[in-house]
């Protein structure tokens, strides 16, 4: 069989093109894809805590947003002391809180919003000083009845950071956000 047959050459060319384009599309979709969902240890219900009856806001519990770089999650003891001294409902999740408190353990939440190790992000700068709404990055949490199993945002990349910093006239000095 001669390789100079133009039909075979064209077919090979088309095959190579399909493989290249297909590979590119696949790689890009993997790059843009969200990580696999995780199962949180307690099925925390944000909606119950944030409805009109209780009226908690994000920073009622995630107090760190007004104080420093980290948003923070309250200690189990704080939940027990402030509200859950007695059972507040019939949810099978609530005893898990009491159990952890009795043993003095923390609830092993799994972090879903992760930044690369060389990036510094400060909640206080964005929430307190830039007055950004939490849901701009974290989605509408007050409607969620289940815990977050996946990051709610595809915005944790440098393009998004830089676009917003430029738009709002904030410094884009590398050392502001890199470590």
């Amino acid at each position: 069989m001669s390789t100079s047959n133009p039909r075979i050459l064209v077919a090979a060319g088309i095959a190579a093109l399909v493989v290249l384009v297909g590979g590119g599309v696949f790689a890009y979709s993997r790059y843009k894809a969200l990580p696999d969902p995780v199962t949180q240890p307690v099925l925390f219900n944000h909606k119950i805590h944030m409805d009109e009856k209780l009226g908690l806001t994000c920073d009622s519990c995630h107090k760190g947003v007004n104080e420093g770089p980290h948003a923070t999650i309250p200690a189990v003891a704080t939940c027990i002391k402030l509200c859950h001294t007695d059972p507040q409902g019939t949810s099978p999740e609530e005893p898990k809180l009491r159990e952890a408190a009795a043993k003095g353990n923390a609830i092993p939440w799994i972090q879903v919003n992760k930044l690369p190790g060389h990036v510094y992000f400060s909640h206080v700068q964005h929430v307190k000083f830039a007055k950004m709404d939490c849901k701009e990055c974290h989605g509408e949490m007050k409607d969620r009845t289940e815990p977050v199993s996946q990051t709610q945002t595809s915005r944790l990349d440098m393009d998004t950071c830089i676009d917003c910093h430029q738009e709002k006239g904030v410094s884009t000095d590398c050392l502001r956000c890199h470590k």
Binding site: E67, G68, P69, H118, S122, V124, L175, R176, H178, K179
Partner: peptide
């Protein structure tokens, strides 16, 4: 401070992470 992998150059940064932290703390 981020750890550096093989194949990159590194240098003193005047501990800029401490400068950033103290500036942010004072702002708060």
């Amino acid at each position: 401070v981020a750890t550096r992998p093989k194949g990159v150059v590194e240098k003193c940064t005047f501990c800029h992470q401490r400068i950033r932290a103290v500036q942010e703390k004072a702002k708060v």
